[in-house]
Amino acid sequence: MSTNTRIILICSGKGGVGKTTLTANLGIALARTGVRTAVLDADFGLRNLDLLLGLENRIVYTAQEVLEESCRLDQALVKHKQEPNLALLPAGNPRMLEWLKPDDMQRIVSMLSDQFDYVLIDCPAGVEDGFKNAVSASKEAIVVTNPEVSAVRDADRVIGLLNTNGINPVQLVLNRVRPKMIASQEMLSVDDVTDILALPLLGLVLEDEQVIVSTNRGVPLTLSGINSPAARCYSNIASRLQGEEVPLIDPAKEGSGMRDKFRRLMQTKIF
Protein backbone atom coordinates (compact mmCIF):
# COMPACT_ATOMS: atom_id res chain seq x y z
CA MET A 1 0.00 0.00 0.00
CA SER A 2 1.34 3.42 -0.91
CA THR A 3 1.95 5.31 2.30
CA ASN A 4 1.38 8.73 0.76
CA THR A 5 -2.18 8.07 -0.35
CA ARG A 6 -4.73 9.95 1.71
CA ILE A 7 -7.51 7.50 2.58
CA ILE A 8 -10.39 9.56 3.85
CA LEU A 9 -13.67 8.23 5.21
CA ILE A 10 -16.67 10.50 4.75
CA CYS A 11 -19.20 9.57 7.40
CA SER A 12 -21.99 11.04 9.55
CA GLY A 13 -23.94 8.42 11.47
CA LYS A 14 -27.26 9.95 10.48
CA GLY A 15 -28.47 9.53 6.92
CA GLY A 16 -29.35 12.38 4.59
CA VAL A 17 -26.93 14.98 5.94
CA GLY A 18 -24.91 15.20 2.72
CA LYS A 19 -22.15 12.56 2.81
CA THR A 20 -22.56 11.48 -0.78
CA THR A 21 -22.95 15.02 -2.09
CA LEU A 22 -19.77 16.02 -0.27
CA THR A 23 -17.91 12.95 -1.60
CA ALA A 24 -18.93 13.74 -5.19
CA ASN A 25 -18.10 17.45 -5.01
CA LEU A 26 -14.89 16.98 -3.07
CA GLY A 27 -13.81 14.23 -5.48
CA ILE A 28 -14.28 16.51 -8.48
CA ALA A 29 -12.68 19.51 -6.74
CA LEU A 30 -9.60 17.48 -5.78
CA ALA A 31 -9.29 15.93 -9.23
CA ARG A 32 -9.43 19.40 -10.82
CA THR A 33 -6.30 20.38 -8.89
CA GLY A 34 -4.50 17.57 -10.71
CA VAL A 35 -4.34 14.89 -8.02
CA ARG A 36 -5.43 11.37 -8.93
CA THR A 37 -8.62 10.80 -6.96
CA ALA A 38 -10.76 7.70 -6.45
CA VAL A 39 -14.20 7.75 -4.88
CA LEU A 40 -15.37 4.45 -3.42
CA ASP A 41 -19.03 3.86 -2.82
CA ALA A 42 -19.03 1.86 0.43
CA ASP A 43 -22.79 2.22 0.81
CA PHE A 44 -23.56 -1.18 -0.68
CA GLY A 45 -27.12 -1.22 0.62
CA LEU A 46 -28.23 2.12 -0.79
CA ARG A 47 -25.71 3.25 -3.36
CA ASN A 48 -26.08 6.72 -4.88
CA LEU A 49 -22.61 8.07 -5.57
CA ASP A 50 -22.83 6.91 -9.21
CA LEU A 51 -26.04 8.92 -9.64
CA LEU A 52 -24.66 12.16 -8.17
CA LEU A 53 -21.60 11.92 -10.41
CA GLY A 54 -23.74 11.19 -13.49
CA LEU A 55 -21.95 7.87 -14.02
CA GLU A 56 -24.86 5.49 -13.41
CA ASN A 57 -25.08 4.38 -17.06
CA ARG A 58 -21.40 3.62 -17.43
CA ILE A 59 -21.03 0.97 -14.74
CA VAL A 60 -19.95 -2.42 -16.08
CA TYR A 61 -18.24 -4.07 -13.11
CA THR A 62 -18.30 -3.18 -9.41
CA ALA A 63 -16.26 -3.69 -6.25
CA GLN A 64 -17.95 -7.07 -5.97
CA GLU A 65 -16.41 -8.46 -9.20
CA VAL A 66 -13.03 -7.01 -8.19
CA LEU A 67 -13.18 -8.88 -4.88
CA GLU A 68 -14.33 -12.08 -6.58
CA GLU A 69 -11.41 -11.62 -8.98
CA SER A 70 -13.72 -11.94 -11.97
CA CYS A 71 -12.41 -8.61 -13.29
CA ARG A 72 -9.39 -6.35 -12.86
CA LEU A 73 -9.59 -3.16 -10.81
CA ASP A 74 -9.15 -0.92 -13.85
CA GLN A 75 -12.06 -2.67 -15.59
CA ALA A 76 -14.36 -1.78 -12.71
CA LEU A 77 -13.18 1.80 -12.27
CA VAL A 78 -15.42 4.32 -14.03
CA LYS A 79 -13.35 7.26 -15.19
CA HIS A 80 -15.16 10.59 -15.29
CA LYS A 81 -15.20 11.91 -18.87
CA GLN A 82 -14.98 15.64 -18.07
CA GLU A 83 -12.58 15.11 -15.19
CA PRO A 84 -10.29 12.18 -16.05
CA ASN A 85 -8.36 12.46 -12.77
CA LEU A 86 -11.47 11.18 -11.02
CA ALA A 87 -12.57 7.54 -11.00
CA LEU A 88 -15.49 5.85 -9.26
CA LEU A 89 -15.39 2.33 -7.90
CA PRO A 90 -19.10 1.47 -7.78
CA ALA A 91 -20.77 -0.47 -4.99
CA GLY A 92 -21.81 -4.00 -5.84
CA ASN A 93 -25.02 -5.86 -5.22
CA PRO A 94 -26.66 -5.16 -1.83
CA ARG A 95 -26.22 -8.89 -1.09
CA MET A 96 -22.50 -8.11 -0.68
CA LEU A 97 -23.43 -6.96 2.80
CA GLU A 98 -23.95 -10.58 3.78
CA TRP A 99 -20.35 -11.63 3.26
CA LEU A 100 -18.27 -8.45 3.15
CA LYS A 101 -15.62 -8.31 5.89
CA PRO A 102 -13.16 -5.62 7.00
CA ASP A 103 -10.43 -7.60 5.19
CA ASP A 104 -12.29 -7.24 1.88
CA MET A 105 -12.60 -3.50 2.33
CA GLN A 106 -8.93 -3.21 3.19
CA ARG A 107 -8.02 -5.19 0.06
CA ILE A 108 -10.02 -2.88 -2.20
CA VAL A 109 -8.61 0.27 -0.64
CA SER A 110 -5.09 -1.13 -0.77
CA MET A 111 -5.50 -1.73 -4.52
CA LEU A 112 -6.84 1.79 -5.01
CA SER A 113 -4.02 3.40 -3.06
CA ASP A 114 -1.47 1.95 -5.50
CA GLN A 115 -2.96 4.08 -8.26
CA PHE A 116 -4.39 7.16 -6.56
CA ASP A 117 -3.26 10.07 -4.39
CA TYR A 118 -6.65 10.44 -2.70
CA VAL A 119 -9.20 7.74 -1.90
CA LEU A 120 -12.53 9.09 -0.64
CA ILE A 121 -14.78 6.47 0.94
CA ASP A 122 -18.49 7.27 0.95
CA CYS A 123 -19.60 5.59 4.16
CA PRO A 124 -23.09 4.17 4.72
CA ALA A 125 -25.28 5.74 7.40
CA GLY A 126 -25.47 3.98 10.74
CA VAL A 127 -22.77 2.50 12.94
CA GLU A 128 -23.21 -1.18 12.06
CA ASP A 129 -21.14 -3.55 9.91
CA GLY A 130 -21.07 -1.35 6.80
CA PHE A 131 -19.62 1.48 8.85
CA LYS A 132 -17.15 -0.79 10.64
CA ASN A 133 -15.90 -2.28 7.37
CA ALA A 134 -15.35 1.19 5.93
CA VAL A 135 -13.59 2.43 9.09
CA SER A 136 -11.21 -0.53 9.07
CA ALA A 137 -9.87 0.54 5.67
CA SER A 138 -9.54 4.27 6.45
CA LYS A 139 -6.75 6.40 7.84
CA GLU A 140 -8.48 9.72 8.37
CA ALA A 141 -12.08 10.88 8.41
CA ILE A 142 -14.39 13.75 7.66
CA VAL A 143 -17.54 13.80 9.78
CA VAL A 144 -20.44 15.54 8.05
CA THR A 145 -23.24 16.98 10.13
CA ASN A 146 -26.06 19.51 9.97
CA PRO A 147 -26.84 22.14 12.61
CA GLU A 148 -29.68 20.00 13.95
CA VAL A 149 -29.88 18.11 17.24
CA SER A 150 -30.27 14.61 15.79
CA ALA A 151 -27.42 15.01 13.28
CA VAL A 152 -25.08 16.45 15.95
CA ARG A 153 -25.88 13.68 18.40
CA ASP A 154 -25.20 10.98 15.81
CA ALA A 155 -22.00 12.73 14.75
CA ASP A 156 -20.83 12.64 18.37
CA ARG A 157 -21.39 8.89 18.50
CA VAL A 158 -19.47 8.38 15.26
CA ILE A 159 -16.58 10.57 16.47
CA GLY A 160 -16.29 8.37 19.57
CA LEU A 161 -16.10 5.24 17.41
CA LEU A 162 -13.54 6.81 15.05
CA ASN A 163 -11.37 7.74 18.03
CA THR A 164 -11.44 4.24 19.50
CA ASN A 165 -10.48 2.88 16.08
CA GLY A 166 -7.41 5.11 15.90
CA ILE A 167 -8.61 7.19 12.95
CA ASN A 168 -6.63 10.44 12.87
CA PRO A 169 -7.18 13.23 11.97
CA VAL A 170 -10.96 13.49 12.25
CA GLN A 171 -12.30 16.77 10.88
CA LEU A 172 -15.76 18.30 10.73
CA VAL A 173 -17.82 19.60 7.82
CA LEU A 174 -20.96 21.47 8.84
CA ASN A 175 -23.43 21.15 6.00
CA ARG A 176 -26.65 23.01 5.13
CA VAL A 177 -25.87 26.11 7.15
CA ARG A 178 -28.57 28.80 6.93
CA PRO A 179 -27.07 32.18 7.88
CA LYS A 180 -30.47 33.86 8.34
CA MET A 181 -31.66 31.23 10.80
CA ILE A 182 -28.39 31.45 12.72
CA ALA A 183 -28.74 35.24 12.85
CA SER A 184 -32.23 34.95 14.33
CA GLN A 185 -30.90 32.29 16.74
CA GLU A 186 -33.20 29.62 15.43
CA MET A 187 -30.29 27.43 14.30
CA LEU A 188 -27.20 26.16 16.10
CA SER A 189 -24.28 28.35 15.10
CA VAL A 190 -20.99 27.10 13.66
CA ASP A 191 -19.31 27.75 17.03
CA ASP A 192 -22.08 25.91 18.90
CA VAL A 193 -21.49 22.77 16.85
CA THR A 194 -17.68 22.86 16.93
CA ASP A 195 -17.74 23.50 20.70
CA ILE A 196 -20.10 20.60 21.34
CA LEU A 197 -18.28 18.12 19.10
CA ALA A 198 -14.76 19.41 19.91
CA LEU A 199 -13.47 18.76 16.39
CA PRO A 200 -11.42 20.97 14.07
CA LEU A 201 -13.68 22.49 11.41
CA LEU A 202 -12.60 21.61 7.88
CA GLY A 203 -15.35 23.74 6.44
CA LEU A 204 -18.99 24.68 6.31
CA VAL A 205 -21.38 24.42 3.41
CA LEU A 206 -24.12 27.00 3.00
CA GLU A 207 -27.66 25.81 2.24
CA ASP A 208 -28.04 26.18 -1.51
CA GLU A 209 -30.83 25.24 -3.93
CA GLN A 210 -28.23 24.68 -6.62
CA VAL A 211 -27.21 21.47 -4.84
CA ILE A 212 -30.56 19.92 -5.75
CA VAL A 213 -30.37 21.28 -9.30
CA SER A 214 -26.92 19.75 -9.73
CA THR A 215 -27.99 16.35 -8.40
CA ASN A 216 -30.97 16.42 -10.80
CA ARG A 217 -28.51 16.80 -13.65
CA GLY A 218 -25.84 14.43 -12.31
CA VAL A 219 -23.25 17.17 -12.66
CA PRO A 220 -21.62 18.06 -9.30
CA LEU A 221 -21.51 21.78 -8.53
CA THR A 222 -17.72 21.81 -8.46
CA LEU A 223 -17.73 20.55 -12.06
CA SER A 224 -20.45 22.76 -13.51
CA GLY A 225 -18.50 25.95 -12.82
CA ILE A 226 -21.56 27.64 -11.35
CA ASN A 227 -20.45 30.20 -8.78
CA SER A 228 -23.04 29.29 -6.17
CA PRO A 229 -22.51 29.55 -2.39
CA ALA A 230 -22.23 25.77 -1.91
CA ALA A 231 -19.85 25.43 -4.86
CA ARG A 232 -17.46 27.94 -3.25
CA CYS A 233 -17.71 26.08 0.04
CA TYR A 234 -16.88 22.70 -1.52
CA SER A 235 -13.87 24.13 -3.37
CA ASN A 236 -12.62 25.73 -0.14
CA ILE A 237 -12.88 22.39 1.64
CA ALA A 238 -10.84 20.70 -1.10
CA SER A 239 -8.14 23.39 -0.79
CA ARG A 240 -7.99 23.09 2.99
CA LEU A 241 -7.74 19.32 2.72
CA GLN A 242 -4.61 19.85 0.63
CA GLY A 243 -3.10 22.08 3.30
CA GLU A 244 -3.96 25.51 1.89
CA GLU A 245 -5.13 28.14 4.32
CA VAL A 246 -8.47 29.40 3.07
CA PRO A 247 -10.48 31.66 5.39
CA LEU A 248 -13.88 30.32 6.47
CA ILE A 249 -16.96 31.89 4.97
CA ASP A 250 -18.57 33.87 7.77
CA PRO A 251 -22.28 33.08 7.79
CA ALA A 252 -22.90 36.33 9.65
CA LYS A 253 -21.59 38.30 6.66
CA GLU A 254 -23.85 36.55 4.15
CA GLY A 255 -26.73 38.77 3.06
CA SER A 256 -26.48 42.57 3.03
CA GLY A 257 -30.10 43.74 3.08
CA MET A 258 -31.63 45.84 5.85
CA ARG A 259 -33.28 42.78 7.40
CA ASP A 260 -29.97 40.92 7.58
CA LYS A 261 -28.34 43.93 9.21
CA PHE A 262 -31.15 44.12 11.76
CA ARG A 263 -30.81 40.40 12.51
CA ARG A 264 -27.09 40.88 13.14
CA LEU A 265 -27.79 43.81 15.46
CA MET A 266 -30.15 41.60 17.45
CA GLN A 267 -27.35 39.06 17.89
CA THR A 268 -25.15 41.55 19.73
CA LYS A 269 -24.07 40.08 23.04
CA ILE A 270 -25.06 42.37 25.93
CA PHE A 271 -23.71 40.28 28.80
Binding site: I196, M266, T268, F271
Partner: peptide, 22 residues
Protein backbone atom coordinates in the same frame (compact mmCIF):
# COMPACT_ATOMS: atom_id res chain seq x y z
CA UNK B 1 -27.43 37.14 26.62
CA UNK B 2 -28.14 38.91 23.36
CA UNK B 3 -30.41 41.82 22.44
CA UNK B 4 -32.87 39.29 21.04
CA UNK B 5 -32.95 37.33 24.29
CA UNK B 6 -33.81 40.51 26.22
CA UNK B 7 -36.50 41.46 23.74
CA UNK B 8 -37.92 37.91 23.95
CA UNK B 9 -38.01 38.12 27.73
CA UNK B 10 -39.69 41.54 27.69
CA UNK B 11 -42.32 40.35 25.23
CA UNK B 12 -42.65 37.07 27.15
CA UNK B 13 -41.88 35.20 23.99
CA UNK B 14 -40.32 31.74 23.89
CA UNK B 15 -36.56 31.48 24.20
CA UNK B 16 -34.85 31.19 20.80
CA UNK B 17 -34.70 27.58 19.69
CA UNK B 18 -30.93 27.52 19.13
CA UNK B 19 -30.39 27.97 22.87
CA UNK B 20 -32.81 25.18 23.64
CA UNK B 21 -31.07 22.93 21.11
CA UNK B 22 -27.67 23.65 22.65
Amino acid sequence: MTLRDILNKLLRRQESSANTAR
